[in-house]
Design a protein around this nucleic acid. Structure first.
Lengths: 336, 336
DNA sequence: GATCCCCGAGAGAGCGCTCCCTGGAGTCAA
DNA sequence: TTGACTCCAGGGAGCGCTCTCTCGGGGATC
């Protein structure tokens, strides 16, 4: 029943324009060695017939697929923080690829075996390159791909030894800025609720806090959470108990800051009057807390774009810096 | 410098296994007409050489690309509510496609011209089918694709006349359930803060509220917002002013409910004691409000899966229901 | 006016795969 | 034993495109 929309081919256009297939190909691909008159004729035929090149045929001979993969390995999407960052990242990547005329293939592994399928797929060069996001732990896949000459860029400094190029945000710098802000506001006893110490973000944010505090000859007061609200609440209670004289806390994620805010409210401490609070991430909900949360913003869309741009360079064989670190910025609202 | 990883081809495997190309093809594609012994030999060769079929070559002859597009037309990603739903939708779609061995091509239009590029791309059958999400207004693209025999399914009941199959969530039912819950709790003067009336979600949620209220012979009290927190806050203030005797409000989005909560706090009304509040969406932040928000949840991952499943059926030529509506469910927390 | 170039168009091979068609070998009934 | 038939493997065409190579013709040069 289907109308069998016979798509026009190069051949068809060639016949209509009264030239050879090769000439049409030249025109379509913008080769300079075509007489203006003939080019016009061909373009008209292309327009009239609604010709669009067959992607598969082109890929078959050029060996380029004109598409890039964005990979989220292994149930990454479970974590709320990933979910929050996901849209921005995709948007950034998407913008950049679109500008380059490339397609985005999204791959989310949901199980161990799909992880293997992904590996196969990428190794088989079904895409021209891959970006890997939300790397938890030390996934060997990026290195494997690199060894097989598949261009790959990862999001976030890889843990362990790795020579894969990456793009990250300046977690340490952001944390330092947050602490500096607290110091500037005259706070003297500044604690932190750190993130898990097996994740780069957790490690770097704590390091930034420590460095800045050390620089100003104050002692650090540390509790560790796991980036969830509950853990933030518990950590805050602990801190209050350990050191009731606190007048500020830098919390390594907005979600934990939310928990901290609640613990503080329950303890009857006013924010920011009694205790100043700074978060990290600038999640949407940071604007909806009471008081609104001062926090560190990551340039998430820019991160996506940079990821894509680096991959593009890699694919075209340009030299790239292995590490690219994007600046974070302190968003001052009401909580500090 | 590149090691020029000569990927093995069917031919190579055939030589190694001492059979013809056609036979290898049969084995790889699981044709039943191959002797067990030969199959084994071939499979061994495949394994040893790490053979993976060339996707482009296969597509060229079969005319199937083994990939589906998920399309977000025109700057959809601007809206927070889309951002919140985006990850779940993608996850659902992705799960289902992965199970079917298909790839997901994500397309986000960022401008008018990219909208055209998308149209070209889809019409050129670079994918086997398309899912369109976040349809704002009455985009003609789905109908155009349908006319060109490109399988397409949209998310959300299309406004205007359209014969394109869609999957939606039961907004009206959810709203009705929310109102019923309020009635059951003994509330008598139940207002609503509706969403924009040029969006299906806004329309349907208001309709559900009205129907349920009419059924119980109560009068409806309506304010209209635009799904933002600010509009929710303003609308709540308005309602309070218009009808100080309110004892419940159904808010058509969690974000607006957040605003309403704030307005109520400022007006010194206690929730849920003085006024009960029910939201809609079950965004993550609904769990972090004070008090925690009772709200209507949409099965967002399931929505994604269903979207993909419907498209799969469409592509394989099965008959499908044009409209599929997934149930919503009331999540009772503390605000009502 | 003959020779040499160079520019621009066409011919043709082939990318890796599927699938139709052919044909050989084996099976079974007559 | 033979013919009809089945079963299964191979041959080969061709999907739509790119790209190299070839070749024709017009202008410049002597």
């Amino acid at each position: 029943m289907s109308t069998a929309q016979q798509r026009p081919t190069l051949e068809g256009v060639a016949v209509r324009a009264g030239v050879s297939r090769a000439t049409v190909s030249r025109v379509v691909n913008g080769a300079p060695t075509v007489a203006a008159e003939i080019r016009e004729t061909v373009l008209r035929a292309v327009r009239e017939m609604g010709y669009v090149p067959n992607h598969a045929a082109r890929t078959l001979v050029t060996q380029r697929t004109n598409s890039m993969a964005l990979v989220f390995p292994e149930a990454a999407a479970r974590v709320f923080s990933d979910n929050e960052l996901f849209p921005g990242l995709v948007q950034g990547v998407s913008q950049e690829l679109e500008a380059a005329g490339l397609q985005l293939v999204l791959m989310m592994a949901s199980s161990r075996e799909s992880h293997e399928r992904m590996e196969q797929y990428l190794m088989a060069r079904h895409v021209d390159g891959a970006m890997m996001a939300s790397m938890h732990g030390a996934d060997p896949l990026p290195m494997t791909l690199q060894r097989m000459d598949v261009p790959v860029v990862v999001n976030g400094r890889p843990l362990g030894s790795s020579t894969v190029p990456y793009v990250d945000v300046d977690s340490a710098g952001g944390a330092a800025a947050a602490v500096r802000h607290l110091i500037d506001r005259g706070r003297t006893r500044i604690a932190t609720i750190a993130g898990p110490q097996d994740m780069v973000a957790g490690i770097d944010r704590l390091a930034g806090y420590r460095d800045q505090l050390r620089g100003s000859r104050r002692r650090s007061i540390v509790a560790v959470g796991d980036f969830t609200r509950e853990s933030g609440e518990a950590a805050m209670r602990q801190l209050l108990e350990d050191d009731p004289g606190l007048d500020a806390v830098f919390v390594a994620s907005d979600l934990m800051a939310l928990g901290a805010l609640r613990a503080l409210a329950q303890a009857g401490r006013r924010v920011p009057d009694d205790i100043a609070v700074v978060g990290f991430d600038d999640f949407e909900l940071a604007r909806y807390t009471e008081p609104q949360l001062t926090t560190v913003r990551q340039p998430i869309i820019e991160l996506g774009r940079t990821l894509a741009r680096q991959l593009l360079r890699l694919v075209t064989g340009e030299e790239i810096q292995r590490a690219l670190v994007l600046p974070t910025s302190l968003i001052v609202r009401d909580s500090a």
